[in-house]
Simulated scan of single mutants.
Amino acid sequence: MTKVYGTGPYDFKRHHVAEYPFEYPVEAKPGSALPSSITLLDIQRDRLTMIAADNWSKTLDASQPKKPFDPELVNEIYRTELSVGEGQRRAVPSQRVMILEVSQYLENYLWPNFDPETATFEHVMSMILIVNEKFRENVAAWTCFYDRKDVFKGFLERVLRLKSVGRGGY
């Protein structure tokens, strides 16, 4: 869907960032168990924060050596935290994406280890979801890509291929 803004000579179109269902946090009602927002304590105790500390986070424990890149970890995080099953109308859980974005999953793990020739479907989709989250949060989304401009073209080609070949083409 495209929206057109303005009526002058400098009209522009704003395209939606993604057509991927996204679940926003549900407001809690008195007496319900659903949180209305994610807290710092929630983030600190989360399983993804622990994984980040062991694998890519530079801020949590700089003295601890990080594990080498594991493409299977990317696949597992996508399958367990970000995936929407085929044919399902379930949405991507926003709090899971938020935690990965806060942990700098894209900047410290996905992008530095992205290879256009070998990256899995899960790797590409994880990057897309984090970039979308950055746009949703009004955070600079493209900054981390500047240091590897030559590889960025390969990333865009992989993204464009998603529409034409789908998951089966990976």
Rank of each mutant, 00 (worst) to 15 (best):
G169P: 08
L129N: 07
A62L: 09
N108E: 07
E81L: 07
H123R: 11
A62S: 14
E23M: 12
G166H: 09
L40R: 07
S83R: 15
N108S: 05
T2H: 02
D61Y: 05
V97N: 02
T120A: 12
K58C: 08
P30G: 06
L106K: 01
K13Y: 11
I128P: 00
D115T: 13
I38P: 06
I99F: 09
P30L: 10
E23L: 11
K67Y: 03
D115S: 14
D150F: 00
P112E: 02
L60D: 02
A28P: 08
S32I: 10
M125E: 14
H123S: 09
G168D: 15
P25F: 13
V102K: 02
L60C: 00
E86T: 14
K66R: 15
I77P: 00
E27C: 11
E101Q: 06
E72K: 14
Y10F: 15
A141V: 01
V74K: 06
T80S: 14
D11G: 04
R45C: 07
D46R: 04
V84T: 15
P116K: 08
D46A: 07
C144P: 07
V84D: 12
P25H: 07
I130A: 07
R90H: 06
G169T: 10
P9A: 14
L40E: 13
D150C: 01
G87E: 06
N55E: 05
M98N: 01
V84W: 00
A62E: 12
L73E: 05
L106A: 13
P112M: 00
F114D: 03
A119C: 12
F135M: 14
D150L: 06
K29Q: 15
T120Y: 01
L129A: 08
A140C: 08
F22D: 05
R14C: 04
S36V: 09
N132V: 08
N55F: 00
T2M: 03
L82D: 07
F135I: 13
V139T: 13
